[in-house]
Nucleic acid binder design. Structure first.
Length: 154
DNA sequence: GCCAACGTTGGC
DNA sequence: GCCAACGTTGGC
């Protein structure tokens, strides 16, 4: 299977690229959107490369990279009553929410704000740059991935 | 199966 | 804090 490329959002107050650097591997819990779930469940493979995007912060932007580190498995928080991600309709036999683990790869030496991405003609087709796209997990092309990494490593 | 009401995301 | 855009829920 050929490698795919992704962008995944996280609010850095909740979990940032530096948190991932510290823990090395993290379960990407709490995704409660079917499209985003389907990407993790159906399309991700171990070794896929991922842009780590900081959302709801000033400024929002891409902070580094990580890789997919596990096959999909049920998000444990859907079964945990005390969690805000608890889902009473999910059962162990029929889990509703699937997720993957991610592994730290790099912190960009240059943080790439959303506004800078918007100015890059080459990145014009990226999902997160389209008006109204709120998806927290989106595919990116290999060319887009490489372009952003090159900007981030400057 | 439609769609109004409501909830959430996330940039600004 | 505002609000546009979008997703989900539930009555009918």
């Amino acid at each position: 299977m050929t490698k795919k490329y992704w962008l995944m959002k996280s609010e850095p107050d909740e979990f940032s690229i530096l948190d991932l650097k510290r823990v090395k591997v993290e379960a990407w819990t709490g995704i409660r959107n079917y499209q985003a779930r389907n990407f993790m469940r159906d399309e991700m493979s171990v070794g896929d490369e991922v842009l780590f995007y900081h959302s709801s912060t000033r400024p929002p932007g891409v902070a580094g990279t990580m890789t997919v580190a596990s096959r999909p498995y049920p998000d444990p928080l859907q079964f945990k009553k005390s969690s805000k991600y608890y889902d009473e309709k999910a059962t162990k036999e029929k889990p509703r929410w699937m997720m993957v683990d991610v592994k730290f790869q790099s912190v960009f030496s240059t943080y790439i704000p959303l506004q800078v991405l918007k100015n890059e003609v080459k990145l014009g087709n990226m999902a997160i740059l389209q008006k109204g796209t709120r998806l927290s997990i989106t595919p990116v092309t290999a060319a887009e991935f490489r372009h952003i990494v090159k900007m981030g490593e400057k």
